[in-house]
Design a protein around this nucleic acid. Structure first.
Length: 345
DNA sequence: AAATCGTGGCA
DNA sequence: TTGCCAAGATT
């Protein structure tokens, strides 16, 4: 039996029952693929369920407010996915009369849809023989063929795409693509795969050469920068507070947060009280300010480590542009802010 | 082409 | 505790 035949057989016996496997509606497949980018199935599942209820069609998504969408996306990370999802929904409704793109080429025109996602939708929904290459596929192919070329090098990206494209079952690309990804996720796992039950144990080069644990190769470690955030949590007599929207590009774009003073190092209250930025926001004095957390909260993003202090400031009067604390949940916020609110409000 | 963009689970 | 990395895309 060839690779595709063995793979498909394994898939039909071992595949998980996932909600997006019961449809070929491109809107639902698109939604699921965006949610699952760089995201584990277990984390994305609840979000998929929420989204199809809130936005049953691309028209519902297109006419929603961005805040509503970001609010549902809250906690999932990589928020540009949500913004691009909204942008592309509007594009499909307004520029294509609600007709979903039906070819790889046209799918690629959607913001947030790259080679992988276009291939996934084209194959699953329209049987176009476009091979997907995600993290799972890199791992399966690197091991099966014993390839030590870095998967994130220009050469590697090109090579693995060609390998997958040569391997794909053109008679049933939808099943092949989902099978190879599921196989990577469930059987050919990153750590401690059980090769003794693998259907490829007699043909896998990595298994033969004891390379399973070191493949695939990925080079370049990301540099982590440290930042110091001081959030000012102002509380008014009527239980109102201040929130700002992050408009600049960078992390958490378009999400909300408390007024922020970013510093180049950790500061204590005596240093905080000296800062001009503080007095532009409040006239509170030393006595009105208390540090919520005993130690700085270390919030780790993939390439930034944030050291965060929440300074709670009792304001003696009401403030301009404040929001009621009871309305806090209406604003999309980073999980860091959400966790603070959960603990304090 | 290399950097940037979140969060959570796991060994 | 630390590092890896997950149905990647964008600039």
């Amino acid at each position: 039996m060839d690779f595709s035949k063995i793979l498909t057989k394994w898939y039909l016996q071992n595949k998980r029952d996932l909600p997006w496997r019961n449809t070929v509606n491109p809107y639902y497949i698109w939604l699921s693929e965006i949610i699952l980018q760089q995201t584990r199935v277990n984390q994305g599942l609840a979000y998929y369920e929420k989204f199809i209820v809130a936005f049953p069609t691309v028209f519902d998504l297109a006419k929603a407010d961005e805040n509503t969408i970001l609010n549902l996306w809250q906690g999932l990370g990589y928020y540009s996915r949500a913004r691009n999802l909204h942008f592309s929904a509007k594009y499909i409704v307004n520029e294509r009369d609600g007709k979903f793109p039906a070819t790889f080429k046209d799918l690629l025109k959607l913001k947030g849809v790259g080679d992988y996602t276009a291939s996934a939708i084209a194959s699953i929904c329209y049987n176009e023989p476009c091979a997907v290459v995600d993290g799972n596929v890199y791992r399966v192919l690197a091991r099966y063929y014993g390839i030590d070329i870095p998967i994130n090098s220009t050469e590697g990206i090109k090579l693995f795409k060609k390998l997958a494209q040569d391997l794909i079952d053109t008679n049933d690309p939808a099943t092949f693509n989902q099978a190879i990804m599921e196989f990577g996720a469930m059987q050919c796992k990153p750590k401690n795969p059980d090769c003794s039950i693998c259907p490829f144990q007699n043909s896998c080069i990595a298994k033969e050469e004891k390379m399973v644990e070191i493949l695939p190769i990925k080079d370049k470690k990301i540099k982590v920068t440290k930042r110091f955030f001081n959030y000012l949590v102002l509380i008014s007599p009527m239980d109102r507070t201040l929130l700002n929207q992050r408009k600049q590009k960078g992390i958490w774009r378009n999400l909300y947060q408390f007024p922020l003073i970013e510093t180049s190092k950790e500061i204590d209250i005596s240093e905080l009280i000296k800062m001009d930025e503080l007095h532009k926001i409040t006239n509170a004095s030393n006595n009105d300010i208390t540090l919520f957390n005993k130690k700085p909260i270390i919030h780790k993003l993939s390439h930034q480590h944030l050291s965060v202090n929440f300074w709670v400031i009792n304001s003696d009067k009401e403030m301009e542009n404040s929001i009621s604390i009871s309305d806090f949940d209406k604003y999309p916020v980073p999980i860091l802010i959400h966790n603070f609110a959960e603990a304090y409000f």
